[in-house]
């Protein structure tokens, strides 16, 4: 399939992104470049200087809501992309409503408890919608430890599944972006296998 045919196909789909930090902002950027038609992006945070070591924001955006800043950046890649930016704190109750109609959902939270929460919500209340989870991206180096695996048709995991973020093991752009790119790559693979 030619590049413009891929874009034409991906344009028909809607992808949910839960969190607009290191994983979510970069994954959204990659999916926008690939040509996904609609992105539903949720976050309640504002851009801070310390985010710029890995997140897809710029100096002049510090203080802006992440959802608004990301929408602005994605529109600079593709003016036709439909970005539904929700300035909202996701929880067990609102996830099925916020991401209703999404063909795939990307888990891009920071805390492990939130990852477990969205897995429970999507696997229980949104059966049939694939969820792409990230687990283990802290630190630097160790390229070979980063992997991705399909658990089943509804659950995919990207990351080393071992390195937890801490004060001495911070998240840095290279490993975060590798994992975000693996998540985006799963999304594209799933959508390219779908007919619409």
């Amino acid at each position: 399939m030619k590049a413009d045919e891929v874009r034409e196909h991906l344009k028909k789909f809607r992808v949910g992104i839960a969190g607009a930090g290191g994983l979510g902002s970069n994954c959204a950027m990659l999916l926008a470049r690939a040509g996904v038609g609609t992105l539903v992006i949720c976050d309640f945070d504002t851009v801070e200087r310390s985010n710029l070591n890995r997140q897809f924001y710029f100096l002049h955006q510090c203080g802006m809501k992440k959802t608004e800043a990301l929408k602005e950046n994605l529109k600079m890649i593709d003016e036709d992309i439909n970005v539904i930016a929700r300035d909202i704190k996701l929880d067990r109750e609102n996830i099925p409503e916020v991401f209703a109609g999404c063909d795939v959902i990307v888990e891009a939270f920071d805390r492990a408890e939130m990852k477990e929460m969205i897995i429970e919500a999507v696997q229980t209340d949104m059966s049939g919608v694939p969820l792409i989870v990230a687990s283990g991206l802290a630190g630097w180096g160790r390229n070979d430890s980063i992997r991705s695996r399909k658990i089943d048709d509804n659950l995919y995991v990207c990351g080393d599944e071992s390195q937890e973020v801490s004060e001495d093991n911070p998240p840095l752009a290279p490993r975060v972006v590798i994992v975000a790119a693996m998540q985006a790559n799963f999304v594209v693979e799933i959508l390219m296998n779908r007919k619409k």
Partner: peptide
């Protein structure tokens, strides 16, 4: 089938079952 944490102590694993355990590490 996803098993909620509240059901860990009453969900039985039998011979031949397919079990997936995924570690969730903070960071994003």
């Amino acid at each position: 089938r996803y098993v909620p944490p509240a059901e860990y102590d009453k969900t039985i694993i039998n011979d031949g079952d397919n079990v997936q355990v995924i570690y969730l590490m903070s960071g994003g």
